[in-house]
Design a protein around this nucleic acid. Structure first.
Length: 369
RNA sequence: GCGGAAUUGGUGAAGUGGUUAACACGGCGGAUUGUGGUUCCGUUAUGCAUCGGUUCGAUCCCGAUAUUCCGCC
């Protein structure tokens, strides 16, 4: 079956809802950790579950190259392949258009996108149809339309051209999409231009998707621009479908997104920061490599995660300084749990009509450090 | 005891009679938003064993001293 979304409560624009999937029912707003290569780096599914993580992201482009979607299909789909029985969302490869296509004018064509494999350099060509076909074989719960994540800053002309092309790609992808057990999301682009965002949202909704994403944010723009991008798009998205803000994971941005009506977020930030010794705390982000933690035998934070239950900052610092992989693993657990707990608290606040109060309080503590 | 060689930062070291002493590791700090697992950026020797001398100018040339290493008795 397709996913279902139930909007249960509004607090201003902030929404509390339920996402019903083939692999469980979960509350929104939610944060989704990223597991590009069929794994959330360093973590087992059990550890994700212990952090109360729900949906995870995986990636069409990367799994296409390695191990190949047919291998995953033979394994019985992504869930079986990676032993994860929670919901999985697959990104379409659209972000790789942004991050890997070298010459945008030349490599991005109406038909599709030319890549050079980042593994062996061989030429690749990805189309909207191919992306959907791969995601079908991966058998994720939610597939994403193939899009171009537009860089920032960008000329109006380029943003317009790219956004219109992304719309045509969305239509083409939807045409070939035929997996009854999978849902398909459309993605709003438009760069930093309000009228393009509006048009992109309206036209994408016209095509009709199971959920809607706001893409092309957190690509180097300042925060005010990003929040405007969200506002410009979300106004035209239907209330009865989940809204997914792609690639956003900074704690403050998550709250700003929720306030604007976003239901789902994904980001590499908690896991990448963890691998580089940066920990989220309720009093700001800290770097555990810092010498000041050498003899700090307290946990990272007041936190209910496995890491904070059993390990100290001094020990984690030692692991990072000694280049022991366990440091990144333990900190990934904490950082993911941190964002997920933020979401839990945000949902409680929305239910009790005090989201703005919660947000202001959180940000005050987070920055006053 | 005699002869020879060496001595540059926390470490391994490059280098020159003339502004700021290369590079690497380490240390310290920062970055990271639809992944960068080992990544990227910044910073880190007011000083070249010590004391004298030559010189306009010495880490570099000369002498003494100290330490280390290698030979010979």
């Amino acid at each position: 079956m397709k996913i279902k979304y139930e909007l249960l409560k509004n607090d201003g624009k902030a929404r509390f809802g339920k996402l019903i999937t083939n692999h469980g029912t979960f509350e929104t707003p939610m944060f989704m950790p990223v597991g590009t290569l069929a794994n959330v780096k360093m973590l087992t599914p059990e550890e994700l579950k212990e952090a109360h993580s729900a949906v995870i992201l995986s990636n069409t482009y990367h799994l296409w190259l390695r191990p190949g979607e047919d291998i995953v299909a033979k394994a019985g789909g992504l869930h079986k392949f990676m032993n994860y029985d929670g919901p999985i969302l697959t990104d379409s490869g659209g972000f790789q258009v942004f991050s890997l296509a070298k010459n945008k004018e030349k490599d991005i064509t109406e038909e599709g996108v030319y890549f050079k494999s980042h593994i062996d350099g061989r030429p690749l060509f990805l189309t909207p149809e191919k992306s959907i076909e791969i995601q079908n074989k991966l058998d994720s719960d939610i597939a994403m339309s193939f899009d171009e994540c537009i860089p920032y800053p960008v000329s109006y002309e380029y943003a317009k051209k790219s956004t219109e092309r992304t719309l045509r790609w969305a239509k083409r992808g939807k045409m070939v999409f035929n997996n009854e057990n999978q849902s398909l999301f459309g993605i709003v682009q438009g760069g930093e231009y309000s009228d393009l965002r509006k048009k992109s949202a309206i036209e994408t909704v016209k095509l009709g998707f199971d959920g809607y994403s706001i893409g092309g944010t957190s690509v180097g723009e300042d925060k005010e621009t990003m929040y405007k991008m969200i506002d410009d798009a979300i106004e035209y998205l239907p209330l009865d479908r989940p809204r997914y803000l792609m690639g956003v994971g900074d704690p403050i941005d998550l709250l700003e997104g929720i306030e604007r009506g976003v239901d789902m977020f994904d980001c590499v930030l908690p896991t990448r920061l963890a691998r580089h010794a940066n920990a989220f705390t309720y009093h700001g982000k800290i770097n555990l490599r810092n010498a000041k933690y050498k003899e700090d035998f307290t946990p990272i934070d007041e936190c209910d995660c496995y890491t904070c239950k059993y390990y100290t900052k001094a020990y984690l610092r030692h692991l990072f300084v000694a280049n022991e992989g366990l440091g990144g693993r333990l900190l990934s657990i904490h950082n993911i749990r941190f964002l997920i707990r933020m979401m839990e608290n945000a949902r409680e606040a929305i239910k009790e009509d005090r989201f703005l109060e919660y947000k202001e309080d959180f940000i005050k503590k987070y920055l006053d450090f």
